[in-house]
């Protein structure tokens, strides 16, 4: 079971939108993963055991985990590329 953290800045809104789309993507590709959400400020305490961080806000710190920018889930631009990057990390 892979673990994905989806983080956004203020509330949990953009991360919820992105997380729903990521869950659908992983399901389509038969990847068993736990997709959860948090604020960027909570990453430090939640990152343990995580395989991938997807974020719609700015992440400066290196958590030793790949970070993919999830703006495409909001804008629709470059979505195929972002999906491919996510699958490459998790497959």
């Amino acid at each position: 079971m892979k673990k994905v953290l989806v983080a956004c800045g203020g509330a949990v809104a953009t991360s919820t939108v992105a997380a729903n789309k990521i869950r659908a993507l992983l399901k389509e590709n038969n990847i068993d993963a736990d997709v959860s959400q948090c604020r960027v400020s909570e990453l430090g305490s939640k990152v343990s055991g995580t395989d991938l961080i997807v974020t719609t806000a700015k992440v400066d710190k290196d958590y030793g985990v790949p970070v993919i920018h999830g703006l495409a889930f909001i804008s629709g631009v470059g979505l195929d590329k972002t999906k491919k990057e996510i699958l490459e990390v998790l497959q």
Partner: peptide, 15 residues
């Protein structure tokens, strides 16, 4: 907050 998520999801689909 919940409502904000629903509204955002809808607007994101539209844009």
């Amino acid at each position: 907050g919940e409502e904000h998520i629903q509204v955002l999801q809808k607007i994101v689909e539209l844009v």
